[in-house]
């Protein structure tokens, strides 16, 4: 591709993916009245009221950010704790069994999880699992497990078998081998898996909506949705936009910090035949 066409192509993609975000930021700083007017016609269109409203609400948006963060951390830790041993077991399986298991995992990873939400609601009802962030992290981890196992097992598979064998000869037991040799070498895959799981848990809406009802336990997406539905007669677009902008910041920061590891982890092994 020529350099100029390439630039145009990239610009189009950037515009396509960034314009909703820019629109959201623009809306968050606008007064409700100005939103219905063409750009440039209203004089006092810029305002911080939306942000003030979101931040001064009781509980404030930080409460929800804290909830979402906690839920994300629980989900990520639980997922890794289960996916690492599962991946290790997976690569030790016989070849036919291994590829069969991988295919099944891939199928479940592609399964639209929203279809499970009624069943999960029933579970929450009959076993009293509602309104507890840690308990909510369990279905989240279960849903993240296929993808996590696929990424982690392919990274484990890339580690030369002699390294683990050398560790065996040195007298390291299974846990020591994992801790000292295998996990450090899986770092890129571990961080990209963590980020993907964290993002999933941060954005998840339908299950959180049904499992959480107490205001002080809500996660960010559910809280923002409540904001939108708080009045029968109008949708507070400005406040809604302000909340989403604030809610996106932590995720954006995490992604920027770990950008390199995410890309490394996802492309690991991609170059080998």
């Amino acid at each position: 591709m020529k350099n100029s066409t390439r630039k145009i192509f990239i610009s189009i993609i950037l515009f396509w993916s960034l314009s909703p975000l820019i629109w959201q930021i623009y809306t968050s700083f606008s007064t409700p009245a100005s939103l219905t007017e063409p750009i440039g016609t209203t004089l006092n269109r810029w305002t911080l009221d939306n942000y003030i409203q979101v931040l001064s609400a009781n509980p404030s948006i930080f409460r929800y950010i804290t909830n979402s963060t906690l839920l994300g951390v629980y989900t990520t830790l639980t997922t890794l704790l289960l996916a690492v041993p599962a991946s290790y077991a997976l690569i030790k399986l016989r070849k036919e069994l291994r590829s069969l298991t991988r295919s099944i995992l891939l199928l479940t990873a592609l399964f639209p999880y929203v279809l499970l939400f009624l069943a999960l609601l029933e579970l929450a009802k009959s076993y009293n699992l509602a309104n507890n962030l840690f308990l909510l992290s369990l279905p989240y981890s279960a849903l993240s497990m296929p993808l996590a196992i696929l990424i982690l097992s392919s990274s484990l598979n890339d580690i030369p078998i002699e390294l683990e064998e050398a560790a065996k000869m040195e007298g390291l037991n299974l846990l020591q081998r994992l801790r000292v040799v295998l996990l450090p070498l899986m770092k890129p895959a571990l961080s990209s898996t963590s980020i993907l799981v964290f993002i999933f848990s941060w954005n998840e809406y339908p299950i959180a909506l049904t499992w959480l009802s107490k205001t002080e336990q809500l996660t960010l997406p559910v809280a923002i949705a409540r904001l939108a539905g708080s009045s029968v007669y109008s949708v507070p677009y400005g406040a809604y936009a302000a909340a989403t902008v604030i809610g996106a910041i932590p995720l954006l920061m995490v992604t920027l910090v770990f950008q390199k590891q995410i890309v490394n982890g996802l492309t690991q092994g991609a170059l080998k035949g």
Partner: peptide, 20 residues
């Protein structure tokens, strides 16, 4: 006897040094 307990000094063809 499992390899961990065999007290065998092995040099692998690839050397298998821990890269990290």
């Amino acid at each position: 006897t499992p390899p961990m307990k065999r007290r065998v000094g092995m040099v692998f063809q690839s050397y298998a040094l821990f890269p990290h």
